[in-house]
Design a protein around this nucleic acid. Structure first.
Lengths: 143, 143
DNA sequence: TCTTGACCTAAACCTAACTTTAGCTTCTAT
DNA sequence: ATAGAAGCTAAAGTTAGGTTTAGGTCAAGA
């Protein structure tokens, strides 16, 4: 199937200007154009967009994603590099999740802190509470 | 205890230029200066830095963090707003974690994909594998 | 044919969060 | 007393990832 840039933007929620920007950056090396010069997206590009979204949300830069897409065009000789890349990305995302869990716990502590302060009518009270009055699950995330 | 900007940078890993930038942005409204105009960080500022780090890693902008710090200076009257803010941040981070889990699964699928391709010696083989040959845990994260 | 909505390019612009630079001052150890 | 390390400011520069603008061109329906 073939799609116009507007259809792709509509279907994916990615802005037209962003799609053109990605194209400018070389993310769709094999995308065709109509005789009049109009972009024709195919399922290949739709799939590339899914990969871009995935890698982007793993924290990868557009430049590095483009590098990867170039490798994809090189065929089986680059399989090793590509495998490496995904394993590294996976490890990276696992680290990010752990960091976010830590952040989540700190935020939970603060939620408890303010819930308690409001119940007590003032912050001062909470500040001076002994450690064993802090709920166990957030006790170690006090900031 | 009191600390110089260099000591704080060393202890926290935050660049001196960043600490000065935060100060310029008004993140340390009560920080003192020596007679010669040199910044004197106290435990108040160290604590503020911890809060900044936490909120920043939850995805909050410096500008919004500053707003929050202003509320902190307003005393108990702003307790409600501050509570709200932390609950909203918590929800936000929980959403981010879910998104990252999804990303992680997609990456895991790709890891399997390339591991299999390399074992087979070529990508073509993996592309044509029936769904039931894809490991259960990543089957639904194919891209 | 004509109109009008969708598409095109190049280039400028934007924002966040810092970092760098240049020139000057303060502090600390000898 | 002095040298050199550490600090200061204002202002300009940087980077990523887009978005906006201006000035056209293309294509599909009436």
């Amino acid at each position: 199937m073939y799609y116009s840039i507007g259809e792709v933007a509509n279907a994916t929620g990615i802005a037209i200007s962003t799609l053109r920007y990605y194209d400018r950056e070389g993310m769709f090396p094999n995308m065709e154009r109509s005789n009049g010069g109009i972009r024709v997206f195919s399922d290949t590009e739709i799939n590339t967009l899914k990969v871009i979204e995935c890698l982007k949300s793993s924290g990868m830069s557009i430049k590095s994603i483009k590098e990867f897409l170039v490798w994809c065009g090189e065929g089986d000789t680059s399989l090793g590099k590509r495998r490496e890349m995904f394993h590294a990305r996976l490890a990276e995302v696992e680290k990010q999740i752990e960091t976010l869990q830590e952040t989540k716990n700190r935020l939970k502590y603060k939620c408890w802190y303010y819930d308690t302060a409001i119940a007590a009518g003032s912050e001062e009270v909470v500040k001076n509470l002994p450690v064993d009055e802090i709920p166990e699950d957030v006790r170690n995330y006090k900031i």
